[in-house]
Design a protein around this nucleic acid. Structure first.
Ligand SMILES: NC(=O)c1ccc[n+]([C@@H]2O[C@H](COP(=O)([O-])OP(=O)(O)OC[C@H]3O[C@@H](n4cnc5c(N)ncnc54)[C@H](O)[C@@H]3O)[C@@H](O)[C@H]2O)c1
Ligand SMILES: NC(=O)c1ccc[n+]([C@@H]2O[C@H](COP(=O)([O-])OP(=O)(O)OC[C@H]3O[C@@H](n4cnc5c(N)ncnc54)[C@H](O)[C@@H]3O)[C@@H](O)[C@H]2O)c1
Lengths: 206, 206
DNA sequence: CCACGATTGTGAACTTATTCACAATATGCG
DNA sequence: CGCATATTGTGAATAAGTTCACAATCGTGG
């Protein structure tokens, strides 16, 4: 397959959300122009994004909402559910476990780990917080697809090393550090302070 | 000023974080190559990013860590502090108010708003949660620089309309919806489900 | 069953972003 | 001082991403 850009993947994920909304409203077909309007892009961009993966529309008519949604789910690998573990039972971790949106989209949090003896053993949304030292053993028995790192910055690289060592191939990181991982592991970082700084830049430059 | 790309701004923010770390370790000078290594980019990219704003280095020597940090703070508009309000006293909102990292970087949360009468009036990290209906009046008296939207998706556009109407020019949005705002208002969205879906895509394509 | 309006799919043109590559220095040392 | 070494700053080359523009094709309605 040709190299697909990050921005294309992000847009596909957006299109999918719109398609689900259109489907919920009973709309059966949709044009690239309409999808573009919703996503703040152009119709050519929508068609180009899709064209990397095939041709899913009908000329003169547009796309079937449900078919295109199914196709994008396929492309994004969303036909299956994913096992997700959370490392760090802190404030952000707490918000994430309780958030129903992830499960709705097929991401199932199956375990939470922490280092703090006061937190280990407590129940979080039906899950018992486990000691982070059990990660390797647990993952050997029941591998996970994705790990979310919500520990303090100082602990993050350490935690990630153990995750990688345990065979985790995808990591979503909230700690404000640049993580080093082997080439076959993919890391996405959410850096909220950085987002605020881009806002600060925008405010100062107009 | 020439149009600066989003990616350049994000990288500058990263460089700044690294510079602060180097400063904390007592390092006084640094080369573009070293910054690049840390940030996962190339030395040419680092120099190009900086060159949009001036020339801050010494040939043969590199950059003064503290001078460059000060310069980037200038560029990003981080010489001042920012007033930030939070709309939505839920789980994510709770994590955000308690997070010390924002204040450390000059972003001061000055008020929290919610719609729920059970939450209005309660204390959150020293701040009393106010009724969202007071937003307009409050902001007329004490303008804010940035608003963080952490309400449910259904309420987000409504809240944003009121923020815009009250003169807010920068918004950080956590609700998984595309927000419509006038051209002079900048919105950044953090969409965690979308991040998970890009991971899902990566996992399914190798 | 043909002509028309709508809309896709996609090369080609264009625009933006990244990397290359090298002259222009700064430092240090014999 | 003059030469060797390091590293910047930047125009030019390349690569990547977006938009244009139009032939291909579908459904409809006369
Ligand atoms: N809270 C926010 O709004 C916010 C915003 C931006 C970034 N972040 C980042 O997200 C991360 C988590 O933030 P938080 O506010 O939830 O912090 P927190 O302090 O509330 O929680 C961190 C948790 O990690 C646990 N922990 C520490 N070391 C560990 C280890 N080695 N293994 C497993 N668990 C360990 C701690 O016991 C604690 O329970 C931090 O890196 C923070 O910088 C948080
Ligand atoms: N919690 C997470 O981990 C997570 C992850 C991804 C995205 N999000 C998104 O972030 C947003 C907030 O999530 P949450 O988990 O904190 O939700 P939550 O339900 O815990 O909190 C939402 C808060 O907003 C308040 N609210 C509702 N309507 C309002 C209005 N019109 N004005 C002011 N306040 C109003 C509610 O009373 C509630 O206190 C949601 O859009 C959610 O989809 C959350």
């Amino acid at each position: 397959m040709r190299k697909i850009s990050e921005s294309t993947v992000r847009r596909l994920s957006l299109y999918l959300r719109f398609l689900e909304q259109f489907a919920a409203h009973g709309q059966t077909t949709i044009s690239s122009a309409e999808l573009a309007r919703r996503g703040g892009t152009t119709s050519a961009q929508v068609r180009k994004d899709l064209s990397f993966f095939g041709s899913f529309g009908k000329r003169g008519l547009g796309y079937s909402v449900t078919e295109l949604a199914a196709k994008i789910r396929d492309i994004l690998g969303l036909r299956r559910t994913y096992r997700v573990i959370l490392v760090g039972a802190g404030r952000i971790g707490g918000a994430l476990v309780q958030y129903p949106g992830f499960r709705q989209r097929g991401f199932h949090v199956t375990a939470i780990y922490d280092k703090d003896p006061h937190k280990v053993g407590s129940r979080w949304n039906g899950l018992v917080v486990r000691d982070v030292r059990h990660i390797e053993a647990d993952l050997a028995k029941e591998p996970t697809d994705i790990a979310i790192v919500v520990t303090p910055a100082e602990a993050a690289q350490d935690v990630v090393d153990r995750l990688v060592h345990s065979g985790v191939k995808a990591i979503l990181n909230f700690a404000p550090v640049q993580l080093a991982v082997p080439a076959d592991v993919v890391v996405k970082s959410v850096n909220m302070a950085l987002e605020l700084e881009t806002l600060s830049f925008s405010l100062s430059n107009r």
